[in-house]
Design a protein around this nucleic acid. Sequence first.
DNA 1: CAGTGGTCTAGACCACACT
DNA 2: GTGTGGTCTAGACCACTGC
Lengths: 260, 260
Amino acid sequence: MNTTLPPTDAPAAAEFQAATAAFSPLYQQIKGLILQSLQAGEWKPGESIPSEMDLAVRYRVSQGTVRKAIDELASGHLLIRKQGKGTFVATHAEHQVQYRFLKLVPDQGDLNTEGPAQREIVDCKRLRATAEIARALALRSGDSVLQVRRVLSFAKVPTILEDLWLPATPFKGLTAERLADYNGPMYALFETEFGVRMVRAEEKIRAVLPDKAQRELLQLPPNTPLLSVERIAYTYKDTPMELRRGLYRTDKHHYHNDLN
Amino acid sequence: MNTTLPPTDAPAAAEFQAATAAFSPLYQQIKGLILQSLQAGEWKPGESIPSEMDLAVRYRVSQGTVRKAIDELASGHLLIRKQGKGTFVATHAEHQVQYRFLKLVPDQGDLNTEGPAQREIVDCKRLRATAEIARALALRSGDSVLQVRRVLSFAKVPTILEDLWLPATPFKGLTAERLADYNGPMYALFETEFGVRMVRAEEKIRAVLPDKAQRELLQLPPNTPLLSVERIAYTYKDTPMELRRGLYRTDKHHYHNDLN
DNA sequence: CAGTGGTCTAGACCACACT
DNA sequence: GTGTGGTCTAGACCACTGC
């Protein structure tokens, strides 16, 4: 903590810090507490969290310390600050960030000129995790997983073929029908229906030639190279919650990446 | 500024802000001033900039305001803070961030197990910009540009074939020899030899099949799909300074991307 | 030890949104 | 007007580095 001679009312969190061996800044601890509340669903995606002043009182720290904690969470896209309105739990349903994890963009124009993707669910079934899938999702081999296969089309052109695997337990009740009926990003459905919010992801990208089955699903001429995009998406606390393998046509689109 | 009744010694920058029509926070203006000094080369890559207190005095603002300006520059990788030592101008020469813009990583192990890339300069010549290259580099068609072609190998396996184009004026004097002799990242050479620091970049990624010439340079069997990575790299003030087209083998490596 | 960045506080005022 | 986040300040103390 910060003063060995606190005037009177030493902050509770600061006391806790002094008592523990492991040192970390106060605002990091506050960040952790807010994260816990997010994970526990105390504030749901799209809702506002308490004001900085309220949180400062709750955690018995200054507003500035809460502010710094929120700043970091906001820069990680877990919260969204809106001046004059409040601070909100981020969601994949917002139109702004609807395609935050989809980096495929048209060569000409943008997503608006092209319009929204058409989604077609090809398949959705329950099966046992292979060793590879289990490893990616931090499960045991043979654990139950859901496999979804779908095709995304832009301007009626089939462009993305995706297979994705989800741990069966948190996604109990997911069916091809519910996926097909839902009108919006899949990650938004995960939030509202299963309380699973994807926070970050890693992708491994390769160039591949599709096999016959893949070629037919995308209605491709032979010898068309495709982008293979393997994604692991994580929810809070870095828990892997989805493995996704996508094949992207890149004759009219490209994968866009900003290096900073 | 912040008070209509300043006690006595109103900050100079704050006064300036009140005088101008366009509003922007003080710390943004300070950020701009620091950026100007960086661009002008007042502090060179690897050197330390003045302490927060010194800058606060210089700009006549509080340390906290300078701090916020530096924070943003540091989060953009333009500056690097080192507690107890100072704040330093970022550089591509540091071992930590040597491959900041190279996202190709081995499927197994990491860059350390694989060792450094072997670089072979195939070609370096001066020519006139095509319309396409001129557009990418914000030049006029026919302006003089340098074209460099090189092959990068990992563990003796040719893995990357790159063509890159640079505006001839800022890079006057660049030759194949100087490139071949330099031991380190190309962007580090650009910093030390030409005072050009690459700050950010954009990449467009596609899957392609190489033509015969490309296949031979990479010693590939036929029908090997490759990643096509087109990069535009920018220096300060978003000035494009390099166009780069890479072909990446992705049988033993992959392009890694973190989505946040 | 002095000097640097890092944390924390308290208080003031500004910009914005709603009512 | 009230309440929210956003900016700015001033001062204190902590953590790290190097003399």
